Computed example of a mutant assay.
Amino acid sequence: MEAITFPNGPITMAGNLYLPKDFDPRGSYAAIVTVHPGGGVKEQTAGLYASKLAEQGFVALAYDASHQGDSGGEPHFLEDPAARVEDVRAAVDHLQTLGFVDPERIGVLGVCAGGGYAVNATMTDHRVKAITTVSAVNIGSGYRKGWYGTDPDSAAVPTLDAAARQRTAEAKGAETAYIPYVPVDPDEDTPRDLVEAHDYYLTPRAQHPNAQNKKIFTRSISKIFAFDAFHLVEDLLTQPILMVAGSEAGSLWHTTELHAKVRSPKRLVIVEGGAHMDFYDVPKYVERAVEEATPFFKENLDR
């Protein structure tokens, strides 16, 4: 693994580039961009998948989103879907500058919100030849409709009202307000997946000093709530797609909705017994996702 930086407009992105064991700088490799979940950093699940894919012979790039982790971009802790999509394109730009990467053999794998961002980037950037989502989340609809997708979109209105009031307060000198990505104190009403997200991000299981479990309330909320990662996917996504999710994930509805919309060559894998967070670091489920993704990418990046 090599720590690298690459440009994304005026922002300097921080990444980790994973290389196959018998890497030959004179070779020509297929490459995969791995996109981390909301609130995550490259050292967590995106890096885990990148390392596993490198073991399978791919060059793989995990990076910190702009405004997050070690990447540049101010204000920090901003979750901007448009920027997150552009991050994927910038990562593809960088891979195409590397002499040992075949520019016609680049794929993307995204986890959780990173899966939604990966879909949105892929449908509008046809340099990407294949995509895999793992525990995919369409972050905009997830915030509007709730974790289980049972609320109407209009349920977002009170939160938008609160964000408007807070932005006014900050314009008048109040301190910047932040909200957590995952529950700080989950209780009996907290969905199982989010209890496990607390365990992943806020305990030694996977906590990292750059994943501080906060985002800017006013600026992030107004950008997230109007975003739809799957808008126009029926017509713009022409590349093959593999979708992996667990049967017990409260987020499964995102994957099944995506599968129903996609018209390009597609494969849906629902892993029995798996929950949303199981695919972040539980060996049984990570290995299953990689076992599905490896032949999928090899087939579709060798065309």
Rank of each mutant, 00 (worst) to 15 (best):
F58K: 00
A130I: 12
L95K: 02
T150D: 09
R105W: 11
V244D: 01
L160Y: 04
H276I: 12
S141D: 07
R267V: 09
T133N: 01
I221M: 11
H36C: 15
R205L: 15
I139C: 00
L258M: 14
F100G: 01
E55P: 02
H67K: 07
G149D: 01
A91G: 11
M1C: 07
N16M: 08
Q68L: 15
Q68C: 12
A177D: 05
I11C: 07
N138Y: 06
H254P: 00
G15P: 03
L194M: 13
N300V: 03
K42M: 14
K172V: 02
P180H: 07
D153P: 00
V157P: 00
V88C: 05
L48S: 04
P191Y: 07
G15S: 11
D64H: 06
F296H: 02
D102Q: 13
N120I: 12
D302H: 14
L53R: 02
D185N: 12
V35E: 01
S222R: 06
P103I: 06
Y181Q: 07
R165D: 14
S154W: 03
V101Q: 06
A171C: 06
A260C: 05
Q212A: 15
Q96D: 11
D185T: 13
H36A: 15
G39C: 04
L53N: 03
P183S: 08
S251I: 10
T45D: 01
L202V: 01
H67Y: 15
L48E: 08
A293Q: 01
N213Q: 12
M13V: 05
R192S: 14
L19A: 09
K266H: 07
N138G: 13
A171G: 12
G39D: 03
S154G: 10
F77N: 14
Y201Q: 02
N120A: 15
A121K: 07
S247C: 09
V282T: 14
P81A: 08
G140E: 02
I216F: 05
R303F: 11
A62C: 07
Y200W: 13
N16D: 14
Y280L: 05
P10M: 01
N300L: 04
T218I: 06
E299Q: 10
G146D: 04
Q207H: 10
G250K: 08
S135L: 11
Q56M: 08
R165E: 15
A3T: 13
G114P: 00
S220Q: 09
S71F: 04
T132P: 00
Y285G: 03
A62T: 06
C112S: 15
G140D: 02
